[in-house]
């Protein structure tokens, strides 16, 4: 936990740096890709600083690691079904039970680890960011009436199915397209539409059928060991 003045200084510094990066993009068109990568790093930095400063119990650390590993391997049984993967579903479930910070960490760590096995690429930070944000937003909304209802969860899963794809399209768009206008953006989003729709619909499918039982399994573990209560 970052406390008091140092904590605010770190966050303020991240904000200031992000602002500087934004300003720099106004002057140098060719720097979009490196600067956008820097931006993604800055966006994730406070989460990791907070995680580093926290004194975690062994159980909490192992739980985060195990959930991350489950999210990372959850693709395996679904391998015969192209572009159906429950990673986002697992991250949402972890976030709903254990909160926003844990949700972010599970998503980000799942992305790091699956890339450690499959090979890093320019997509790694974007993937960390997208899955982390799925967890973070799910955790923020977890006590609202919206996320309590099945319709709310499904809408959340569907929307993030698209958002995930859109964020992942960004690194190609920012770095390698010369005239970044709405036509190009729409074209790239249209090209990935089928994948994003499958992602969103599989989220809906998993959330509708299995969110109840997952919440029960994870909730039981949380209750039994008294974990990650803030």
């Amino acid at each position: 936990m970052i406390k008091g003045r140092t904590g605010w200084a770190v966050y303020a510094l991240c904000f200031a740096a992000a602002g500087a990066v934004l300003l720099a993009t106004m002057w140098r068109r060719e720097l979009y890709l490196p600067l956008s990568l820097l931006m993604v790093f800055l966006a994730m930095l406070p989460f990791f600083i907070r995680f580093e400063r926290r004194r975690l119990r062994a159980e909490e650390l192992l739980l985060i690691a195990m959930l991350g590993a489950i999210a990372a391997v959850s693709r395996i049984p679904f391998a015969p079904l192209p572009s159906v993967q429950p990673v986002s579903f697992v991250v949402i479930m972890a976030a709903l039970v254990f909160g926003a910070e844990t949700g972010f960490l599970v998503g980000a760590i799942a992305a790091i680890v699956s890339n450690l096995f499959l090979g890093q690429g320019p997509w790694t930070p974007w993937q960390m960011f997208s899955w982390g944000m799925i967890g973070f937003t799910a955790g923020l909304l977890r006590n609202t009436r919206f996320m309590g209802s099945l319709w709310g969860k499904n809408l959340f899963g569907l929307v993030w199915g698209f958002l995930f794809g859109w964020i992942m399209n960004l690194w190609g768009l920012l770095g390698f397209v010369e005239t970044l206008n709405w036509q190009v953006v729409f074209a790239s989003y249209a090209a990935s539409f089928a994948f994003d729709l499958t992602h969103g619909l599989s989220n809906v499918f998993f959330l509708t059928l299995f969110s109840g039982i997952w919440l029960k399994i994870l909730g039981r573990v949380k209750l039994k060991y008294g974990l990650l209560e803030h």
Binding site: F48, F51, E52, R54, L56, L61, L62, I64, A65, M66, G68, A69, A72, V73, L105, I109, A110, I112, V113, L116, F117
Partner: peptide, 14 residues
Amino acid sequence: PQTAFAVTVTMRFV
């Protein structure tokens, strides 16, 4: 260190 440790443990679980 803590992040690296968490990632190491996760990698061992995979």
